[in-house]
Amino acid sequence: MEKAAVGKVSQIRMRKEKPKKKARDWHSITFQALFLLPALAFLIIFMYYPIVETFRTSLYQTTGFGPARFIGLQNYARLFANEEFRTGFVNVLAWAFWSVVIQIPLAFYIAFTLVVYKTKITGFLRAVYYLASVMPSAITAMLGRFIFAPTFGVISSLATRLNWKWLGSIDFLGNPDIAFWSLFAMATWAYTGFSIVYFMANIEQIPMEIRESAQLDGANLWQYARYIAIPMVSYPIRIIAIISTVGSLKLFDLPWLITGGGPVYATTTLAIILYKQGFVNWQYGRAAAVGVIIFLLSLIFTVAQFSFQRKSGELD
């Protein structure tokens, strides 16, 4: 994980310091055990045990109370036969696709221009862009409804004021074709800040000499971005792509709080289905199956991340 050179140096040092020690230092072992205990206890109780339980529960028909019936993979089969689930599955993949295609170029553009045109207000603008990322999702949802609500929402009342009937007649949250995009706009508002800050930090690390020599060679900004900056930060771009994709798989707060997954199933997501199956219909087995599916999908994307990492390591 760590790429810091410092880590490597101290590693070498530590190896030198550690001569082959006497048989066994029980004092040290007790110390290590005691220090690892809290973290491992937390993880075992609240993470590893529930993970095992999720896999097990997903094979049973159970409401959490009374006897559970083993039904094998039927929960999964029923999910894929369910229209709501299929819509949610497609929504989540579409969401992942569009967040990579729209949010990443936007974030890169903002980060790149902020770094290239470094002015006095660069730091201020960076703080402004990041502000939305700090807002808790419940507040983002509140602001989303504030903007997109019919009749009294900001856009609708602005349309009335300007007498733009075409704009006023759009039902941003109630129209199944548009609700997805209203939510996506809110998510772009909320999640782009992190990518901007992350890209900025990486673009700033490109050595000044490279930029200067590019300028001397007569490269304009577009060429500099296209042939130097983007290739040099390709690894961070991939990381952000993975973070957005995995984030899309887990999407819950915004659609749940703004549209509740509706109208009909237009904005439903895997996590919303999990919540509804588990805590509205009390179908624990099926909810656990959704959890397993979310996990497997994010595993696939995470493994993709590591294979990317290895490839970029080879190029270096």
Binding site: Y49, I51, T54, G291, I294, S298, L299
Partner: peptide
């Protein structure tokens, strides 16, 4: 490595057992 694995576990996955437990 056991701890590292935990970094990739989405909380969504364990909601049901967590609630039961």
């Amino acid at each position: 490595y056991a701890v590292l694995v935990g970094y990739f576990i989405p909380v969504h996955m364990v909601l049901i057992p967590l609630y039961q437990f």
